[in-house]
Design a protein around this nucleic acid. Structure first.
Lengths: 128, 128
DNA sequence: CAGAATCCAATACGATACTG
DNA sequence: CAGTATCGTATTGGATTCTG
């Protein structure tokens, strides 16, 4: 069970913090480096490069250098990368339905012992 | 999208390295601390405790101290925890079908530039 | 039995600056 | 444009030892 769960490839830990978002950005077709930086607004080029290289290594995406000066580079999902969309959708649906509950429970648990100004339960106010 | 992706609660990063395995261990019913240590053979009590506490905080499991000396403690999935089984099954199915492909690609990529004794592609031999 | 305490190593993530 | 280089910090996971 969970064969190969060596922490970078566990079913629930596919890659790092950005892998899932990158896959979604590539869902609609090839994107260039700078086109990925925009929607992932807080990512640094270094981390983006690292993540993309790791994904390329795992055959989830392909990296293509096109002709031109300066040479544009595009990233695209491989067939293997496309297969991740289904389980990701399942996880996404779960999050949409249950993540607020989880976060509320977390808030409630955290506020025990430090109620502060008694803001009450439900202080949660999801951040994107 | 991926609301609440603050790195501990992203759909593809539910908890730490062990959260998913613990959920599966609890799938068939309540388990005691020591009953969890066995199947998760390489976990240390410290990390197991940390993970269980985090899951309890997120209302994924309940912790029950029973009467007796020494007092047995059992952990059990909450209704919320049970809802994770479905997306986990999707991820698990993905892994069963595609993880070998991914790992083979990784091996192939890694062996480029350091073919060693030319073991060829497919040196993969999955470790559990 | 079910952990708590302490210490430590690896890694992930990020800020900043620079380049072919 | 699409990175690379360097540095620093925060978080994670683990080994070991001890206890009500």
């Amino acid at each position: 069970m969970f064969a190969g769960c060596s922490h970078t490839a566990s079913p629930f830990r596919i890659g790092g913090k950005w892998t899932a978002q990158i896959i979604r950005c590539l869902e609609a077709g090839p994107r260039r480096f700078s086109e990925l930086e925009i929607p992932l607004r807080s990512i640094t080029p270094k981390v983006l490069t690292e993540t993309l290289r790791a994904m390329e290594r795992d055959a989830l995406i392909t990296r293509t250098v096109h002709a031109g000066v300066p040479a544009p580079v595009t990233y695209e999902l491989t067939p293997l990368g496309l297969t991740l969309l289904a389980p990701m959708a399942a996880c996404c649906a779960w999050a949409a339905e249950h993540l607020p509950t989880l976060l509320d429970a977390r808030d409630a648990h955290d506020s025990v012992g430090s109620p502060g100004v008694d803001a009450g339960v439900g202080t949660h106010s999801a951040q994107s």
